[in-house]
Structure formats: structure tokens, C-alpha cells
């Protein structure tokens, strides 16, 4: 069994639109086994050593180039005073970038799973609600969404909760009144709003991945589970989801890498992630080259390392399959 997902393809949210996600159905025997291509029988190589040409062509030269660029850049940064200075300044934002990406991704996973499940639900309300959410998010640029959710969405929800609290107060119910009116817009830091914004945005992307993963599992699995008396919830939990999630792990991993990159957008909310810190450094020292070069290399290092990790996990999963 193979997983031919979207692994290896740099993942932008645009590439994750519903119809474009390709999560193939599990097949017991691959139609084309890549190993067969790699180890061609000698008879074929006689015709102009096709096998060698192909492996020469298939070699990931781009990846070597990428590593070279990273190495040269790292050397540049580490060997020059100005760059070291920039790096030391910018690295203060690493923890914020990390926290933002990880926390937003975890929330987005939950949101995505719930939305993905409601997208395949037969309940008309849930189904349409899920679809509405996904389509809304997909139709708006991420930068705009981040402004909107952080500066309009969150305050609106807070105002709503406040007026609900006031209503409770008028009814003479004190506990919810005290809790709900204790929220105020000033007390919600931009960092939290940024995390909400990223989670809500990525939740829609992940929902489509989960949906595609669930739908990639053949009908027979659900039928077999139901035929032994499982409820649809039990069948989903014990039979469908474990397989679906394994199928989409590469896609989920790629989206985490994308999330790390997109966390740079929170700098527009003045959250001090590495992008924002780099901007501050550039602004105060006018060392634009040092500042943004260092920033770019930091992102590149992060994403390449994470991509390699994703691929390693994926290989390990494949090795466990038979």
C-alpha cells in the first residue's frame, strides 16, 4: 500500500482547495510500483541505458541546491558581524513564532476534524454549516482574514458576550452576569487574537483534508463495521478515522509547515514573532539586507527541517504497511 498524497509539494493553502486534494483510495497492490522503475531488468537498460538516464534525471537536484543556498546563507550570517547581530536580535521572536504555529495548528486540527465530520454528515444543518465555513474562509485572502478576525470578529464576539451578560444581569441571574461582563476587548492580547485568526483560517483547510481522507475510505469499511452492530459513531471512531488520518498524515504535515510560514502574517497585528522582530530591527538600524536575509534563512531552515521530518514520519508509516 502506498500513500501518494501531496507530500513533497510545497503546500500553500491554495493548493488545498477541496477538489484539488488527491487522497487516493487504499489499494492492496500499487498499480505502478516505484521500486520496479528504479530496478529495471538489464534487458531494458540495453536500449540506450534508459535506467541510468532516468535515475540521473530523477535525482533531486533542486534539493541539493536548496541545501547549498541554506549553507552559503548560514555561513554568510555566521561569519559577519552585522548578520550575527541581526540574528541575535531576531531570534527573540522564535518562541512566539513557535507557540503561534503549534497552538494555532492544534486548535485548527480540532476545528478541522469537527468541520470535516460535519461536511460528510447527513444532517443537513451541520453539513451546510461546515460548507459555509469552508467556503467563507476560502473566498477571503488570509491577510484580510487575520485583520478581520482579530479586529472585527473577536471584538464582536466579546461585545455579544457582554450584552448577553447584561441581559442575564437584568434577569437577576448574577453568576453568568459576572462572568460574561468580565470580558473586555482590552484584556484580549493581540497574540491570542492572532492565534484565533490563524486557527479559524487553517481549520477550514484542514477540514477539507479530513473530509477527503474520510471519503477516501471505501464504502465497504463502513458497511462491514455496521454489519457487526457498530453505531455510525463507533464505526467512524474505530474503523474509518484511524485509516483516514493515516492516509492524510502527509497532507497534515505539509500544512503544519505551511502554518509555520503563514504565522509570519501575525506580524501585521504587531505580534512579536520573528517577522515582526526583523521588521523592527530593519526599521531601527536600516540594515534591510541583513535583517530580511537572516529572516528568510530562518524560515527556510525551519521549513526544510520540518519537511524532512514529515517525510521521515511518512516513510516510517509506509514501512509499517504491507
Amino acid at each position: 500500500m502506498r500513500l501518494t498524497g501531496v507530500q513533497g509539494v510545497p503546500c500553500t493553502p491554495d493548493s488545498l482547495h477541496a477538489e484539488e486534494i488527491y487522497v487516493p483510495e487504499r489499494q492492496t497492490e500499487p498499480l505502478i510500483d516505484t521500486q520496479d522503475i528504479a530496478f529495471q531488468p538489464p534487458a531494458v537498460i540495453q536500449f540506450g541505458s534508459e535506467g541510468e538516464t532516468r535515475s540521473w534525471r530523477d535525482f533531486p537536484w533542486w534539493f541539493v541546491a536548496l541545501i547549498l543556498i541554506a549553507a552559503v546563507a548560514a555561513y554568510t550570517i555566521l561569519s559577519r558581524e552585522n548578520y550575527i547581530d541581526a540574528f541575535n536580535f531576531i531570534k527573540a521572536g522564535l518562541s512566539i513564532t513557535g507557540i503561534t504555529a503549534v497552538l494555532s495548528y492544534l486548535i485548527a486540527l480540532i476545528l478541522g476534524l469537527l468541520t470535516g465530520l460535519s461536511r460528510i454528515s447527513r444532517n443537513i444543518f451541520l453539513n451546510n454549516l461546515g460548507r459555509l465555513y469552508v467556503e467563507l474562509i476560502r473566498g477571503i485572502p488570509m491577510l484580510v482574514l487575520i485583520f478581520f478576525i482579530a479586529l472585527v470578529g473577536v471584538p464582536t464576539v466579546v461585545d455579544g458576550l457582554n450584552s448577553l451578560g447584561v441581559w442575564f444581569g437584568e434577569q437577576g441571574i448574577r453568576a453568568p452576569y459576572l462572568v460574561l461582563t468580565s470580558f473586555s476587548n482590552q484584556s484580549i492580547p493581540m497574540h491570542a487574537r492572532a492565534i484565533v485568526a490563524l486557527s479559524v483560517t487553517y481549520g477550514a483547510f484542514l477540514a477539507e483534508i479530513f473530509r477527503a481522507g474520510i471519503q477516501s475510505i471505501g464504502r465497504g469499511q463502513m458497511e462491514a463495521a455496521r454489519s457487526v452492530g457498530m453505531s455510525s459513531g463507533q464505526a467512524m471512531r474505530y474503523v474509518i478515522l484511524p485509516q483516514a488520518i493515516r492516509n492524510v498524515l502527509p497532507a497534515l504535515g505539509n500544512d503544519f509547515v505551511a502554518m509555520v510560514k503563514d504565522s509570519s502574517l501575525v506580524s501585521v497585528l504587531a505580534v512579536r514573532d520573528i517577522t515582526q522582530v526583523a521588521r523592527l530591527y530593519a526599521g531601527s538600524t536600516f540594515r534591510f539586507r541583513e535583517s530580511y536575509m537572516t529572516l528568510a534563512v530562518m524560515y527556510l531552515t525551519l521549513t526544510v527541517a520540518l519537511s524532512l521530518l514529515v517525510q521521515a514520519v511518512e516513510r516510517r508509516l509506509r514501512a509499517h504497511e504491507s
Binding site: 458497511e223 463495521a225 455496521r226 454489519s227 457487526v228 452492530g229 457498530m230 474503523v239
Partner: peptide
């Protein structure tokens, strides 16, 4: 349905579970 066993043309075993787990799953869950 728990009282009616069904065998399918394409087996429909759960591929992520071992043979033993395929047989124990519904016993435990249902």
C-alpha cells in the same frame, strides 16, 4: 445487526487492524 453476521464479496476486513483485532473489535465495542 449484532445478531446477524455478514460476509462480503470483497471481505471488507479492517486493513489497519491485525486479523485478531479484526475479530475482537466488535466484541469489545458492541
Amino acid at each position: 445487526r449484532a445478531e446477524i453476521g455478514m460476509v462480503f464479496q470483497l471481505f471488507n476486513l479492517f486493513p489497519h487492524l491485525s486479523a485478531l483485532e479484526n475479530v475482537t473489535l466488535a466484541q469489545e465495542v458492541v
